[in-house]
Design a protein around this nucleic acid. Structure first.
Length: 903
RNA sequence: GGAUCCGUAGCUCAGUGGUAGAGCGUUCGGUUCACAUCCGAAAGGCCGCUGGUCCGAUCCCAGCCGGAUCCACCA
């Protein structure tokens, strides 16, 4: 007889060990591939790697885990791909706040320094959040975890952009963009929100007319006024130039006629400020007006164009400008009741300043010149013909409506944290878009040579200056260091110089590499100066800046090195790390190639024999037109959704399992919140279809947002957030999961409060005590067949069958809350309240006891199975207590989904 | 200006073309050998309003009222 269970279920005693048991048994890994297998794959919406667990994560983990566990039990080849998102702008905003608290700013940091700091911050958060997901019971295959900044993922993202560029779907254009003056970056249309405001509308005396404006401080950027073509009031002015008083200057500006003007608004005259208003920009474009009058800079401060107002922030300037205009009698009157919406940054709520800037865009509504694909039409088509289905259908309408009205997507961001654009601008005017090489060069200066000891120059490879003993020793030490660090090389390049060849041989012997001799790495040719003391050489040639007696100049060496580097940057098969062994002057040239702005004096840093340095070639590329190496790489990074939008394609291609893509793409279900329908879901459809001609997922399921009990959105500032970990500590993961499933129907927001979770904790305990009763009364090994003998027996078995069928159907049709409610009712009402009560008498009846025991165990086992996808921990814990011969698998997580019997 | 959703028990929400459901709350009663994180019982609803389709509408349709949300370049 097993020990009776304690009278109360203590989740914290069991959850950790149970989860470990699953991981140890490899429960979460998909089975080996078999012929004709039925697969089930889900991609986890990658959580931002910048924060900790919130209840929204708990919702999606619960629902996805439910599906995954269900399909695993049904015997499908199941995999749940987990991931983490670098969440570019979001993370940078979080991290900048963190820096601010330490009195730092990203604008005072070098790009690399800031990037590395953010990476460290992100990595730290990543491990935390993954472990928190484990506590939620997530049965994801963690061995397949991917991060959006993994190099192989980045390669694919770059490749997509290159493909789109060649297809003329990615293009650069100069046009007004949404600019946040705090974060100093462009934002997409989705990253701004509207604020309703009441602001004064100023009616300005403007030469012969009166114009209405809400932004008098932009007056210095005015280049014209516009009226409606049919407006007779102003028809005689159209085409003329008028003299206007701007307070600080007189300006002569054009009067143009344009349909954009609303005759009813204000006076029917609009002043045109192309640099600071998208509409005005369009007008200026149509009428070929100048666009270069910029009154506000990237920090939201007025420029020199505004004379005395230079340096003032927009808000301050507005009042001061109004004062000036007032003094000069230029304000006709002011309307204080003017209501309008203002675009603000969705993160910091500062007013968006439109600016005219070059940015990269994705053309949403154009035919690719190579692919012949139209991004929007494909994304709509796949939904129209049912290749992807929506649960619930209402989101399909929103999806359509959004795509029907979409504009081109600005994808470049002026931030650091993210995937940098693979774009270079050559001085010849050419733009090169190419997947950057990941080749890394390790430079090694040869060991001490005999000429070094003598202090003379040697540039002729036929002269026999060999490595000294000390030189050999230096190289031996370098090799040791490589070995200690586990550094290996895909190729070793060496110049022809004997000391270099000897060095290379020593390295290659120990590291098992092939030496490729390349004379472009040779020392500088000295001509008549061969063998002269170093000081003499430098003096006569002015540090190799001029040629003396047939000697090479530094420029000659530079050209050789540049040519060598260009080949490496173009390598078809891209080695990850190559070693080049050469001499000091090549090192200088290498630095200059990678950083052309270096002055000769900065460039000529001394390098010791046997010293190493590493260089990354990723930031340069050969120009696709003139062939020169280009280092002017676009500093911008991609909108984070540009990479996450490709997630369903990139993940299965980069897990390290060659057939994952073939087996598991398209994924079966995408489960996510409706709040990212446009940001993410629509873009995954766009990219999936563009890249693979297949939909990225066959089913879309949207869950609602979790609200507090007063239907308020949870937010830190309101202080009404629920910490899932605190809930788990107190009530157990299963209670949280059951409460979340129980209270959600697709697409609808769900209010959750502690009462509901407590109720489900009670349910876990109920299940526990049902098990306790059954194990105490029927816990021994039971071999009896299921033979209903009483009405109660028949009833419970019928109810069980109905529950199995119902729950299976509910889950298959994404009605998870109905499954939960059905199971809750079955376990509590049918099993506990009715059958167990009836069984108490039956167990005392010798004629009925054995069959009753068998039925109790049978119903319990089936109930555990049915509840396992929702409440994995308590069910598995009890399962471990069941007699072995009642189980089809030692772990419930690997047991089979029950089938209705139908006698 | 366009679009979408919601209105069902005191609260929060499910649900269905045929006699209305759950959780929590409320009231009353229970120290029985699985569980007081429990057990038993009860009260509580013109399913927003008005029309239409139908043998029949809480459900389908139209309009209205009330609430929420999303999208959109009005100086």
């Amino acid at each position: 007889m097993p020990e009776p269970l304690p009278p109360q279920y203590q989740p914290s005693d069991h959850e950790g060990p149970i989860y470990q048991a699953w991981e140890r048994a490899g429960v979460f890994l998909p089975p080996p591939r078999t012929e004709g297998e039925k697969t089930f794959s889900i991609l986890m919406p990658p959580p931002n790697a910048n924060g900790s667990l919130h209840v929204g994560h708990a919702v999606f983990v619960t629902l996805q885990d439910l599906m995954v566990r269900y399909h695993r039990m049904k015997g499908d080849a199941t995999v749940w791909f987990p991931g983490l998102d670098h969440a570019g702008f979001e993370t940078q905003v979080v991290f900048e706040k963190f820096l601010e608290k330490q009195g730092k700013s990203r604008f005072g940091m070098a790009r690399d320094e800031f990037y590395d700091a953010t990476m460290a911050f992100t990595k730290e958060n990543s491990t935390t959040i993954i472990n928190q997901f484990r506590r939620l019971g997530a049965s994801a295959d963690w061995s397949r975890l991917k991060f959006t900044l993994d190099p192989d993922v980045v390669d694919l993202v770059h490749q997509t952009f290159v493909t789109m560029y060649e297809d003329e779907l990615a293009y650069r254009d100069v046009r007004p963009v949404n600019w946040c003056t705090k974060h100093q970056t462009t934002l997409s249309d989705l990253e701004t929100k509207d604020e309703l405001r009441t602001d004064p509308l100023y009616y300005l005396k403007y030469g012969p007319v009166i114009v209405a404006t809400g932004r008098p401080e932009t007056i210095f950027g005015d280049v014209a006024v516009a009226v409606h073509p049919d407006d007779e009031r102003y028809s005689k002015l159209v085409g003329t130039e008028i003299e206007v008083d701007l307070g600080i200057e007189q300006r002569s500006i054009k009067v143009v006629a344009d349909e954009m003007v609303d005759r009813e608004f204000g006076t029917g005259v609009v002043k045109i400020t192309p640099a600071h208003d998208p509409n005005d920009f369009e007008v200026a474009k149509r009428h070929k007006l100048p666009m270069d009058k910029v009154a506000i800079d990237e920090r939201g401060k007025l420029t020199a164009l505004t004379g005395p107002f230079e340096g003032l922030k927009v808000e301050e300037a507005r009042g001061k400008v109004v004062e000036l205009l007032q003094e000069k009698g230029l304000i006709d009157h002011v309307d204080d009741t003017y209501q309008h919406t203002v675009k603000v940054c969705y993160k910091c709520s500062r007013t968006i300043e439109p600016r005219i800037l070059p940015q990269w865009y994705i053309a949403m509504n154009r035919l690719g010149t190579k692919s012949g694909k139209n991004l929007t039409q494909h994304a709509l088509g796949a939904v129209n013909d049912g290749r992807t289905k929506f649960v619930t259908e209402r989101f399909e309408k929103l999806y359509r409506h959004w795509l029907d009205n979409i504009r081109d997507w600005a994808v470049s961001r002026q931030i650091v944290w993210g995937i940098r654009l693979p774009v270079w601008y050559c001085r010849c005017g050419q733009t090169t878009v190419r997947v950057p090489t990941r080749t890394e060069i390790i430079f090694l200066r040869h060991g001490e040579g005999e000429h070094n000891v003598q202090g003379i120059g040697n540039g002729d490879p036929s002269k026999p200056y060999h490595l000294t003993d000390k030189g050999k020793q230096q190289i031996a030490e370098v090799v040791e260091q490589f070995k200690r660090d586990g550094t290996t090389f895909d190729a070793v390049y060496a110049s022809q110089m004997p000391r270099v060849q000897e060095t290379a041989k020593l390295v290659a012997e120990s590291l098992d590499g092939t030496i490729i001799t390349d004379k472009r790495l040779n020392d500088i040719v000295l001509g008549e100066l061969e063998g002269q003391p170093i000081e003499v050489l430098h003096k006569q040639t002015d540090h190799h800046m001029k040629s003396v007696g047939g000697s090479e100049t530094f420029q000659d060496v530079l050209a050789r090195i540049e040519s060598f580097v260009k080949d490496r940057a173009m390598d078809e098969v891209q080695p990850k790390r190559i070693l080049i062994i050469t001499s000091e002057i090549s090192f200088w040239a290498l630095r200059k190639v990678l950083n052309p702005d270096l002055e000769p004096t900065e460039m000529r840093t001394h390098v010791l024999n046997g010293e190493t340095h590493s260089f990354s070639l990723g930031d340069l590329t050969p120009c696709s037109s003139c062939g020169h190496l280009v280092v002017e790489r676009d500093p911008d990074v991609f909108d984070t959704w540009f990479s996450s939008g490709q997630w369903p394609v990139t993940v299965p291609k980069t897990t390290g399992h060659a057939d994952d893509y073939e087996r598991f793409y398209p994924t079966m279900v995408m489960e996510t919140g409706w709040d990212i329908l446009f940001f993410w879901v629509a873009r995954m459809m766009v990219f999936g279809l563009y890249l693979t001609d297949e939909v990225p997922f066959k089913q879309l399921y949207f869950h609602g947002m979790v609200r507090d009990k007063d239907r308020q959105k949870m937010s830190k500032s309101k202080g009404n957030v629920m910490d899932p970990l605190a809930v788990i500590d107190q009530y157990g993961t299963d209670a949280l999961r059951m409460a979340l499933v129980f209270n959600t129907s697709a697409g609808n927001d769900m209010p959750i409060d502690e009462e509901k979770i407590r109720g489900m904790r009670n349910f876990s305990n109920k299940l526990w005590n049902i098990s306790r009763f059954i194990l105490m009364n029927a816990g021994g090994s039971v071999g009896t067949a299921i033979e209903p003998q009483t009405e109660a027996d028949t009833l419970i078995l019928t109810q069980l069958d109905q529950t199995i069928e119902g729950a299976t159907h509910d889950i298959d049709t994404f009605r998870f809350h109905e499954a939960a409610q059905r199971l809750y009712a079955f376990v509590w009402d049918d099993l506990a309240a009715t059958y167990i009560e009836a069984s108490k008498a039956q167990l005392k009846d010798d004629g009925l006891a054995e069959s009753t025991k068998a039925i109790l165990i049978h119903v319990l086992a089936a109930s555990l199975k049915l509840l396992h996808p929702i409440m994995p921990f308590v069910t598995e814990t009890v399962w471990q207590q069941l007699p072995a011969d009642t189980k089809d698998s030692p772990l419930l997580a690997q047991a089979s989904w029950p089938q209705a019997t139908h006698d």
